[in-house]
């Protein structure tokens, strides 16, 4: 898994490539942690290169969403493949998260 964070206009875009599983999810959590503390941050996880996600990855996504929203920010996801989207659908995450 690789994580690249790029400021695009007024948003921080987190490009996630590869597999987010039990092994790699802590790396994703660590990479985004410094951003999440900012008041009113606008953040989007770009999942165009995300090949696989397990419940460990979902935990990081939901945890990030909760922190950002609690601090008055906006959290979104984009570029989900059909397979990755199906995991978000199965778990009901598609309904509670903003998917662009």
């Amino acid at each position: 898994m690789e994580v690249k964070i790029v400021k695009e206009d007024d948003r921080q875009v987190v490009y996630i490539t590869g597999r987010v599983d039990t092994v790699t999810a802590p790396e994703l959590e660590k990479a985004v942690a410094p951003l999440l503390g900012e008041i009113g941050i606008k953040i989007v996880f770009d999942c165009t290169g995300l090949e696989y996600v397990s419940s460990s990855g979902l935990r990081v996504v939901l945890g990030s969403h909760k922190i950002v929203v609690a601090k008055g920010g906006k959290f979104a996801l984009r570029g989900l493949s059909r397979e990755v989207k199906s995991v978000f659908d199965l778990t009901g995450f598609s309904k509670i998260l903003t998917i662009e």
């Binding site: 397990s54 419940s55 979902l58 935990r59 939901l62 945890g63 969403h65 909760k66 929203v69 609690a70 995991v87 199965l90 778990t91 009901g92 509670i96 998260l97």
Partner: peptide
């Protein structure tokens, strides 16, 4: 089973593995 009808703020972090 995890309660997938809860809002984002109410959803606990975790408990999804067995559900999946």
């Amino acid at each position: 089973d995890a309660d997938i009808t809860l809002s984002g703020e109410e959803r606990p972090i975790g408990g999804l593995g067995v559900y999946l």
